[in-house]
Write a protein that binds this DNA or RNA. Structure first.
Lengths: 167, 167
DNA sequence: CTCATTCCTTAGTTATTTAATAGGGAATAA
DNA sequence: TTATTCCCTATTAAATAACTAAGGAATGAG
């Protein structure tokens, strides 16, 4: 269980922009140099960040990237989700929600007392309904973990991280 | 960011044993059938669980797996870590701790005010010291997330999950 | 106007990890 | 002594991650 370079580098890039903006947009090459991440790879991280409305860009000489909003109005969860996608700890791949929890085989206890709950899927995304998921006891756990992660992500702003950085 | 089948299947397997133990050890084939996980793959999950002292096994006819302790004395974090390894959200690969944070390039802010803190690495494992890590602002975030995950893992016992299951 | 600069987009490639399968071996109870 | 059951290791196929490459489009400076 880890966070991909996409998420890690991407956050560093946004932090870099936040810390190094001085009236002028910050160029990719400057970020690349400071963060020791190849420009080509950084480019790919900028696209989703831009799409998510976290950064804005301008082209041409003196161009580069700036934050779309003040750091205190950018929640870290936005950045994370833009890069890594919605939180989805347990794997829920099926598109057909109605078939959920019909197969009691997936549940680790037997007998009629065992009513598979339908919300064991911990995905944040509505699109991915569950027919193969980790049910019941384990599903509960993944959900709790996911909520804990979301809580951290959504209770910090970019400004908080900038403070940690320059302190 | 997700949890591998190793962790998910493994937890389900342990839950299965907890729920279906009735005086006799639970066989792999029974777990396989109920959980719809191949026996071959399950076998590989049993090894670390056994090594971690979570389950015990007996061979031969009527053999199988049982819990090594009562479910209320098995913390979920033990199971998780046995299967997925120590929590290690940010990647810290170097073995040489003294080189940490010497390269200011990794930090996303410039200037002398920027003292890279040495503990940004969020790894639970002592063995993996950091020379390439996500520093400062971002390192702080990964650490907070990791602590939140550990809190959930370490505040639930297997008995808690069994209750969720059979309710 | 034109040209250097900078972002933009897509395709392709390589490395790593995951998820399994396969097959023989060792212990044990009936 | 034999069917059962766990044990161990190697191999492989698929998926994902992590880049690299390369050409294009916009823009500001001169």
């Amino acid at each position: 269980m880890n966070i991909s370079t996409k998420g890690r580098y991407g956050l560093r890039a946004v932090l870099d922009i936040a810390c190094n903006y001085q009236g002028k947009p910050v160029t990719l090459s400057a970020i690349s140099l400071r963060q020791q991440i190849s420009e080509g790879y950084l480019e790919q991280l900028m696209a989703p960040l831009k799409k998510a409305g976290i950064i804005v860009s301008s082209r041409g000489a003196q161009g580069g990237y700036s934050l779309a909003r003040d750091p205190q109005h950018i929640v870290v969860g936005e950045i994370f989700r833009a890069l890594e996608g919605p939180l989805n700890l347990a794997v829920c791949t099926s598109e057909d929600e109605t078939t959920s929890c019909k197969k009691k085989d997936y549940c680790s206890s037997e007998g009629e007392a065992n009513a598979c709950r339908n919300k064991d899927c911990s995905s944040e995304s509505e699109a991915t309904a569950c027919s193969k998921k980790d049910y019941c006891g384990s599903g509960y756990l993944w959900e709790e973990i996911q909520k804990a992660i979301a809580e951290v992500l959504d209770s910090h702003t970019l400004a908080d991280l900038v403070n940690k950085e320059t302190r």
